[in-house]
């Protein structure tokens, strides 16, 4: 059923909360796990400078060692938790997160996307949006959303 499982991560607690779910499913189905870090170009634009977006689109991401290290660190967490028994493919791509996730899923015949969500509601959702929600609307693959909030609220 699930031969290829994609877990997008940005290294945050919210994203890493979903890793165990993905690993458990991958073990059940003996699936290949893809850990994907998306360099968010909109965040780079505001948080680092527009010129840096240009640099990425020109194919010079290798120069940007700090960003590369941060991305690799995030995908390494998935590989470490998965252990030696599972095959883990680590990828780094750039663009709008939900667009890239959905495109990656298509390109790699992903059967299931497992991702975390902060579970924001109301005004905060309107302002910040939710990558999980946008991904749901963009991709045709099945998506498992793991909410970071505990049940006791």
């Amino acid at each position: 059923m699930y031969d290829t499982i994609l877990i997008p991560t940005d290294g945050s607690d919210v994203a890493e909360n979903a890793i165990d779910h993905a690993i458990d499913l991958a073990e059940q189905y003996d699936a290949t796990l893809h850990a994907l870090y998306v360099v968010d170009t909109a965040a780079i634009d505001i948080g680092l400078g527009t010129e840096q977006v240009q640099r990425i689109t020109e194919g010079k991401f290798s120069e940007m060692s700090e960003l590369k290290a941060r991305a690799t660190e995030a995908t390494n967490v998935v590989a470490e938790r998965a252990g030696d028994d599972l095959e883990v493919v680590q990828s780094i791509e750039a663009g709008q997160p939900h667009t890239v996730i959905s495109q990656y899923a298509d390109d790699n015949d992903v059967d299931l996307v497992v991702m975390g969500s902060a579970g924001r509601g109301g005004v905060r959702r309107a302002i910040l949006g939710s990558v999980a929600e946008r991904t749901l609307r963009t991709t045709r693959s099945p998506v498992l959303v793991v909410d970071v909030r505990e049940d006791d609220d």
């Binding site: 977006v53 689109t57 194919g59 991401f61 791509e93 663009g95």
Partner: peptide, 15 residues
């Protein structure tokens, strides 16, 4: 706008 980057690892056309 940058929706996705085709190749961020290989230098392509630049400004």
């Amino acid at each position: 706008r940058v929706a996705s980057v085709d190749d961020m690892w290989v230098a392509g056309r630049s400004i």
